[in-house]
């Protein structure tokens, strides 16, 4: 019942939204160019002597740029496809963070705990394999 009226209402909005869409797109493009150029500039010139600050900064810029691309180029918002694209995106974002963050976290600690093998421990292992 409400569907047809919704559609007739949505149509003019769609056609007149063309100019708005194009402005939206160019804002996104300029933001994308700036957000790409700045991290390269930071790393290639080494303006910030501190590497850790540079790393944190380019990490933040990458996250911002991903959001800019998703919003301005993929047009993700709360309304598109009845909100299902946003839901799928958020679900994916959670899985991506868990996969990457979890893997690096677990493997870093595993690595750190395996590393300090005492020299006599190594010698003992060699002896054992030699005696066999």
């Amino acid at each position: 019942m409400s569907n047809p009226s919704h559609h007739t209402a949505a149509h003019p909005e769609h056609t007149q939204g063309s100019a708005h869409n194009s402005r939206h797109f160019w804002i996104g493009s300029i933001l994308a160019i700036v957000l790409t150029a700045v991290p390269f500039w930071l790393v290639m010139t080494g303006v910030l002597r501190d590497m850790q600050t540079t790393a944190i900064l380019i990490f933040a810029l990458a996250l911002i740029q991903i959001v800019v691309h998703v919003v301005f180029f993929l047009h993700l918002d709360t309304r598109s496809e009845g909100g299902w694209t946003l839901l799928a995106f958020l679900f994916t974002a959670v899985i991506v963070v868990l996969t990457i963050g979890g893997s690096i976290w677990v493997m870093y600690h595993l690595n750190a705990n395996m590393m300090p093998m005492p020299a006599d421990g190594v010698a003992q292992m060699h002896d054992m394999s030699g005696n066999h």
Binding site: T36, P39, A62, Q65, I66, H69, V70
Partner: peptide
């Protein structure tokens, strides 16, 4: 978008 992750 994937390339943003790669270059960073």
């Amino acid at each position: 978008i994937i390339w943003i992750g790669v270059f960073t």
